[in-house]
Amino acid sequence: MTDTDAKPAPRARVEIGGARPERPREDAANILIVDDMPANLSLLTSMLTAQGYEVRAAISGAMALMSAAAVAPDLILLDVNMPHMDGYEVCRRLKADPRTADIPVIFLSAMTGIGDKVMAFEAGGVDYVTKPFELREVLARVGTQLLLHRQRRELERQRKELEERYAQVRQMQAALRGYLSDRAWESIEESVSSNRPSPPAREVLTVLVSDIEDFVRLSEHEDPGPLLADLSLYMATVAQVVYDHQGEVDKYVGDGMLAFFRSAPDALAAAQRIQRAIADFNEQQRSHGRPAFPTRLGLSTGPVLLASIGSSGRREFTIIGDRVNTAFRIQAQARAGGLLMDEATFAAAGSPAGAVPAMVRIRGKQGEERLYAISPDTALDGADPGEV
């Protein structure tokens, strides 16, 4: 570096070449100056300190690397022509170190050739100032690069914050999915995209209702804590069968469950599998000295509405219609461990063998309806119905 690298300028907090000094920053930027000429270090240090920056100096490339790695500066002013290690190599090493890779580097050099500038940018520099330089130009370039650096850091901070929030949203979404059926979730997504509740959908479905016989009486004599644990395991067992047969759990109603299927054969297969699964569950309960949960099942097939109902503060997506009410009333008339289905389900399921017809008066209905019963012993291949 020559001794005429910079044009003289005042060193105090006064106008420099006609430019008014900036006010000291609240969080003063830290600048590392790297130059093997003490006179140039002194000049640049005086100029930048007068502008409110925190300045430190290094007289060699090796010293600059150690200083930057110890405490990363906000910006580096780097001379090119230095003994032992030139500025290009210093910059390359800075960019290779994750601790210093993001620090902007402005080269200062008396070399004005295009090739020299290209080498500087290829090494990782963000700017190139030729000597002799105007101090106003250096201040302007330093200010610009510090602003860009702060903006990049802020964008990176915001990006990380958004990633964290997105991960939290995904976790919340996954948790919420456990409380909603797939159709309910689709309804929510549709209402959010259209900014209004999704319209009711009319479909022909097979509705399945399960209920534990005399659960209220049972709960009067059992400790609530262990009983809740038993009930949770029971519900998980029943719901898994529903999902395994392409059904959806609409809701849990006390100790009962409301589910629906688009296929009557799937619904019947699920109901019979539930009978077997609950028989196994009850056997395990008894073996551990816990109460059994004798379960009644009802199936009804027909048109229902899938709709979002409720107020602006609390809404629920559910199925409503006569067949839903009928399924609840049918299961109430089934025997413990048994399954009752209406005639529409029996026909849609292919008239399953072993189903016993009976004319039954359903509460709230006029006249009698033909229902079909599948007893526990049929579903359980000879098991004693009284033990279900």
Rank of each mutant, 00 (worst) to 15 (best):
A57C: 07
R363D: 08
A69K: 12
V324G: 00
L65G: 13
D322A: 10
V71I: 14
V356F: 06
G143Y: 01
T45A: 15
R136K: 05
T326A: 14
L208A: 08
R13Y: 13
R159L: 15
L258C: 04
M119E: 09
R92D: 10
S210D: 10
R99I: 09
I106S: 04
F346I: 01
E369L: 14
G52S: 01
E387F: 14
R276S: 14
P226Y: 06
D97I: 08
M235R: 08
D381K: 14
S67D: 14
G302Q: 12
I16F: 05
A270E: 02
R152C: 05
A175E: 11
G18E: 02
A201K: 15
G125N: 03
R20W: 12
K251G: 00
E203G: 06
R13A: 11
D74V: 09
R273M: 13
H288W: 11
E283L: 13
V34C: 12
R25L: 10
A271T: 00
N81M: 10
G354A: 04
L339F: 00
V242S: 01
A12K: 14
A383K: 11
D102H: 08
V90Y: 12
I16W: 04
D377K: 00
G256E: 02
V126P: 01
T4R: 14
N325P: 09
N81W: 05
A358M: 01
G254S: 06
M257C: 10
V242Y: 01
L228W: 05
A292S: 04
L380E: 11
C91F: 10
A6K: 00
D74A: 07
G87M: 13
S300L: 00
V241A: 04
D244Y: 11
M37E: 15
R329V: 00
P8A: 09
Y243V: 00
L139N: 08
I106H: 03
A334P: 13
P352Q: 04
D27N: 09
G337W: 07
L108P: 03
E134W: 12
G298M: 05
E156C: 01
S193K: 15
E203S: 11
G364C: 00
V169H: 11
T237N: 00
L205S: 07
A264T: 07
F121H: 06
D377V: 04
G367Q: 10
S67H: 13
E15C: 07
E248Y: 06
T4F: 15
D86H: 11
Q333S: 15
P200Q: 07
V304L: 04
N81G: 07
S311F: 06
A358C: 02
M47F: 15
D36V: 07
P83E: 08
A120M: 03
Q285G: 05
Q171D: 15
P226T: 06
L147A: 11
Q168A: 14
G313D: 12
A175Q: 13
G125S: 00
R20D: 11
N195R: 12
L135H: 02
V253D: 10
S193Y: 07
S351Y: 13
I374F: 01
M111H: 02
R363Y: 05
R11P: 06
L43S: 14
E220Q: 08
